[in-house]
Design a protein around this nucleic acid. Structure first.
Lengths: 335, 335
DNA sequence: ATGAAAGCGCTAACAC
DNA sequence: GTGTTAGCGCTTTCAT
């Protein structure tokens, strides 16, 4: 079991210096005479010495590791956010402990505690709302946390995102402008404040601007992913719905395919605008008109913000709101 | 900076026992009198004590963390493998350090070294081949490694996968049986032995069985992902190709959409069989006929095998070969 | 059943 | 510029 046969001490002896000097060399501390440094470097190479990050973490109280809580790696929205997170983390030499939360509060709490036990230097949280226990856990830990790509029920946490309310409003308006007066609001769940509070408000604003009364039967909760949305397609048809603003590309793809497979022509007989402009929006046929948002950047900026917080460079936790837009594709009619 | 104000020592003093006893309680060691255990438990709860995993890792030389090297989280093939890995890891109480490798050898080497420095107990490697340095790094570390969902140029490593050669052969035969005598072999890169050695061999076998000579112009390397395959569609058309066996769903989706957008009817004028049966194969229209393989299980079994290796329960590293099949969808003609 | 004490491999004062 | 010396918070013999 001599997994770590060669330690800083071995190197020190072999190079005839103290372990402190070896430590300085390894950490790039300038207070080392060039010759000494070279001598140590030679021994390190010769012995193939590798610093033990665990020991270092214990001594320095920094693990250069951040925890990332993600609902699902198979959802392209979160996967694309993760890409930006990962790149910046790599750039700043942080490792990432990635934990799937499945949108399950119990699991989230468990993984969060695990992350804290591992002494991560910071946490990126992806997900739509937090249990009271989780909020408390984060607050008590005084470990920096940033919420990426969502807005949650805890305004003490920094978030990096777009303005979901105005995005939803614009998407709905776009549909309403096409003389679709029966526009549905399709979301995974109204339990998330991002949907029930912000997107829904945007949807209602657009309705109001067009003088169309809000009808709750046009609010659809899929309570699931692609397949659930697929199955609900005929339900929407029965309701006489002619268009939909959808909160997630996964759902939009499901709805689209469900409609198509039921003989409904998109966009001629039904229009769809989705929210995240992920690969799903480009792979489907017809392609999906979508809110555009800089997914990669949201991830990247979240991570960058976190590095600043971990370095104590930033105290205020103002939200970072990025610009969004809308891109017209084939799931909506022109003009 | 009293991040860890309460340590095992704090608990010990408060409970009027030694830290050894607290350690026993925390670790479920039976050699503790019930009353003592309860007393300690009470103090732990009262102080909200949480064991420091870093200190524990240093003392025990086990981090209960495994490293996962993944080419890309946004590729559904790897994302679906990751799902199985994650579930079993959670079940066995391991955390996962997830590192994106982008199929880049330098980056892979760096992340692998980072993982080893962090003293991970084991590594799951996803990717198609390994540099000599990486192989050496793994060999020298005596950290258990299992390769998930591929076959690589290092037969000392345990792998969990399907038989790629016979899968490719069956897919090609399926196409050839439809009287498509101009069947292309489309892969990302022949630099990977999974493609150049195994899948290509299967493709050639099928050709031989049908008495069709192998022509290298029917071998297409995309050197890229969805978009690259999309762009190559017209090139395939020009070559007079009528069908294709594709090594990755990402590429198959790109090819399909490229063909469709160029006015080529799939499956009437062109047939496609893809390899991984991921969500992509179900989301496209037409849907994609595909080799089927238990992606989730491959991930899960890889992780389970790794736990056994980490526990020293297993020494031999025989490959685990799972069954594959083929599912007919809309990208091929019936009969 | 419990405690004392010696590390695990490293960082970080502090001294010279 | 370099060495000495305490820890970091925990596990793990070894006694008792």
């Amino acid at each position: 079991m001599e997994k770590q046969a060669v330690t800083i001490y071995t190197v020190a002896r072999e190079a005839r210096v103290s372990m402190a000097t070896v430590s300085r060399v390894v950490n790039g501390n300038p207070n080392v005479k060039p010759e000494t440094r070279q001598k140590v470097l030679d021994v390190i190479k010769k012995l193939n010495y590798r610093p033990n990050a665990v020991a270092r973490g214990l001594a320095s109280k920094k693990t250069t590791t951040v925890g990332v809580i993600i609902p699902s790696v198979t959802n392209p929205y979160f996967a694309e956010l993760a890409l930006g997170i990962d790149d910046i983390a790599t750039m700043y030499k942080y490792n990432i402990i990635l934990t799937n939360s499945d949108f399950n509060d119990d699991k989230i709490l468990k993984v969060a505690r695990g992350l804290l036990a591992k002494q991560v230097d910071g946490i990126i949280f992806m997900g739509h709302d937090m249990s009271a226990e989780l909020q408390q856990e984060f607050a008590a830990s005084n470990t920096p946390v940033v919420v990426a790509g969502s807005i949650v029920n805890d305004d003490k946490l920094a978030t990096v995102r777009i303005n979901y309310q105005s995005a939803a409003k614009e998407a709905t308006n776009y549909l309403l402008d096409h003389n679709d007066d029966r526009v549905a609001f399709v979301v995974s769940s109204l339990d998330y404040s991002i949907n029930s509070k912000y997107r829904l408000a945007g949807y209602k604003e657009a309705l109001a601007e067009h003088g169309i009364p809000f009808e709750s039967k046009y609010v659809i909760e899929t309570n699931g992913d692609y397949n659930r949305a697929y199955q609900q397609a005929d339900h929407l048809i029965e309701q006489g719905i002619k268009a939909a603003y959808v909160s997630d590309d996964d759902l939009a793809a499901g709805l689209l395919n469900g409609l198509t497979d039921n003989g409904v022509k998109v966009p001629d007989d039904f229009e769809i605008v989705t929210s995240n402009d992920t690969t799903y929006a480009k792979i489907t046929r017809p392609t999906l008109t979508s809110i555009t948002q800089p997914l990669y950047d949201i991830g990247a900026i979240s991570m960058r913000l976190l590095t600043k917080m971990m370095d104590g460079e930033v105290s205020d936790t103002d939200d970072v709101i990025l610009d969004h837009g809308i891109i017209e594709r084939q799931s909506t009619r022109r003009g």
